[in-house]
């Protein structure tokens, strides 16, 4: 879909602060607030804006590192497993992938015990064949913000 400068400005501003008032964006772009709310609705309906969220610093609430899980599943069951993985509360983001794994999930982790539990939970799901871990050191933040252009 083609985005014009109004759409791009809206996206840029909401990326930095999702709580900004649409009136303020309207003032900046010199258009009516209705135009902005229509555009936001359209961007949401077309699936360009998936959702909005609050960005929390995981290190402030007891999480000490981030782990990337690479999961291999029985062919054709990727979606089913993905839906289960995304329900694990500490998982931030997960996706189907093409490469050496079938699924990738990124999760915040409290400690090694928690890590083992997470790994066992995923391994215990039906159709999961293998789980591979990569523990991220020296990075304590990943925010949905990064997933934006």
């Amino acid at each position: 879909m083609k985005l014009d400068h109004i759409d791009i400005t809206i996206l840029e501003m909401l990326k930095k602060d999702a709580r900004i008032s649409l009136r303020e964006i309207a003032r900046l772009l010199k258009v009516s607030p209705d135009t902005i709310s229509n555009r936001v609705e359209k961007l949401t309906q077309q699936g360009i804006i998936l959702s909005s969220t609050v960005v929390v610093d995981p290190s402030k609430i007891g999480y000490s590192f981030i782990t990337r899980f690479g999961v291999n599943v029985k062919p054709a069951y990727a979606t089913q497993v993905l839906e289960k993985i995304i329900k694990i509360p500490s998982v931030i983001i997960a996706s189907k992938v093409v490469g050496s794994y079938d699924l990738v999930a990124v999760s915040v982790v409290k400690n090694f015990e928690h890590l083992c539990t997470l790994r066992d939970t995923i391994l215990g799901m039906p159709y999961v064949e293998q789980v591979d871990l990569g523990m991220w050191i020296q990075t304590m933040e990943i925010c949905p913000h990064y997933f934006l252009i």
């Binding site: 996206l11 909401l14 990326k15 930095k16 602060d17 999702a18 709580r19 699936g47 360009i48 804006i49 998936l50 959702s51 909005s52 969220t53 609050v54 960005v55 929390v56 610093d57 402030k60 609430i61 933040e141 925010c143 949905p144 913000h145 997933f147 934006l148 252009i149």
Partner: peptide
């Protein structure tokens, strides 16, 4: 604790 708010774009 809250670093900000953002939208998630596909």
């Amino acid at each position: 604790l809250i670093k900000g708010t953002t939208i998630v774009i596909d």
